[in-house]
C-alpha cells in the first residue's frame, strides 16, 4: 500500500513541471499576455482536438501518417537489416557494397526532396521512399557494427562445440548483435517521424503534416499546435514500444536486470 503511494509520488514528480507550465500558459493566454495569433491556449488546443475528433478528420489523418511511417520503416528497415547482416557475415559482400553505402550515407536524405518530387510527384511513393531511405542507414550501420562486435571467443567456442553455421548465427551471432541493432532501431524510429513530418509538410494531400499546413493557411493556430503535439506523442509511443521490445529480448543483459 505504502509502496504504491510512493511509486505514484515518484512517477508523479516528473509530471509536476509540465503541469505547471501548461497552467502558466493557459493563464498567460487568458490574460492576453500571449496573443492568440502567436500561440493557442491549451484549452483552445483541447477544443480543436475535440472538434477534429468528432469530424473524423483527426483519426483519418493520424491513420494515413502512421501507415506511411510504418510501411516506409518496414521497407527501409528490412533492407538495412539484410545489408547489415550480409556485410557483417561476409567479407565479399562488405567489400562490394560498404564503400558505396557509406558514400550515399553522407548525403542528407532530406536534401533529396526536390529530386524525389520530380520523380514521384506528391504521391505515396515519395513519402515511402524518403522514410525508407532515412531509416535504412541507422539500421544498416548498427546491425553491421553489432555483428562485427560479437565476441570472437564466443564464436570460436561455438565452432569447437560443433555448431552449424545456422546454429552459430541464431545462438551466438544474432543475440550478440541485438543490443546494437536495438540502438539502431530506436534511432531509426526518430528519423522515421522526422522525415515524415518534413515530407508531409512539403508534399502531401493528406496526413498530419498536411493538416498542419492547411491550418496554417487558415490561421488555425490551435490545429497547428495540436498537430505538433500529436507528432510528439506518436514519437514517444514508438520509442516506448521499442524500449518494451528491448526489455523483453535483452533480459540477460545486466542493464535490463531488475532487482
Amino acid at each position: 500500500m505504502k509502496s504504491t503511494v510512493q511509486s505514484i509520488l515518484r512517477n508523479g514528480t516528473g509530471w509536476l513541471l509540465p503541469a505547471l507550465i501548461v497552467l502558466a500558459w493557459e493563464i498567460a493566454a487568458r490574460t492576453g499576455l500571449i496573443s492568440p495569433n502567436v500561440m493557442a491556449a491549451p484549452s483552445a488546443v483541447a477544443e480543436a482536438f475535440w472538434r477534429l475528433l468528432l469530424s473524423g478528420e483527426l483519426v483519418r489523418n493520424i491513420g494515413v501518417s502512421t501507415a506511411r511511417a510504418l510501411s516506409g520503416f518496414v521497407i527501409g528497415g528490412s533492407i538495412g537489416l539484410i545489408f547489415g547482416l550480409a556485410n557483417g557475415l561476409s567479407g565479399l559482400s562488405r567489400n562490394l557494397t560498404d564503400t558505396t553505402l557509406q558514400m550515399v550515407r553522407n548525403i542528407p536524405h532530406l536534401a533529396l526532396i526536390p529530386l524525389v518530387i520530380l520523380w514521384f510527384g506528391i504521391d505515396e511513393e515519395a513519402k515511402l521512399f524518403l522514410v525508407a531511405l532515412g531509416v535504412f542507414f541507422p539500421i544498416y550501420v548498427n546491425t553491421l557494427l553489432g555483428i562485427q562486435s560479437v565476441d570472437p571467443q564466443l564464436v570460436e567456442m561455438g565452432r569447437v562445440y560443433g555448431m552449424s553455421r545456422t546454429t552459430l548465427f541464431f545462438r551466438v551471432i544474432l543475440p550478440g548483435a541485438l543490443p546494437a541493432i536495438f540502438v539502431g532501431l530506436r534511432y531509426a524510429l526518430g528519423i522515421m517521424w522526422l522525415t515524415l513530418i518534413v515530407a508531409e509538410t512539403i508534399a502531401a494531400s493528406s496526413g498530419l503534416g498536411y493538416m498542419a499546413m492547411q491550418a496554417r493557411e487558415f490561421l488555425l493556430i490551435d490545429v497547428v499546435v495540436l498537430s505538433i503535439l500529436i507528432y510528439a506523442l506518436l514519437g514517444k509511443l514508438a520509442d516506448s514500444f521499442a524500449r518494451l521490445l528491448e526489455r523483453l529480448t535483452l533480459q540477460w543483459h545486466p542493464a535490463f536486470q531488475t532487482a
Binding site: 571467443q153 564466443l154 567456442m157 545462438r171 543475440p175 535483452l250 543483459h253
Partner: peptide, 11 residues
Amino acid sequence: MFQEPRLLPWA
C-alpha cells in the same frame, strides 16, 4: 576448456 568461461550471456 578455455582460460575464460566463454558462456553465452544470453542463455
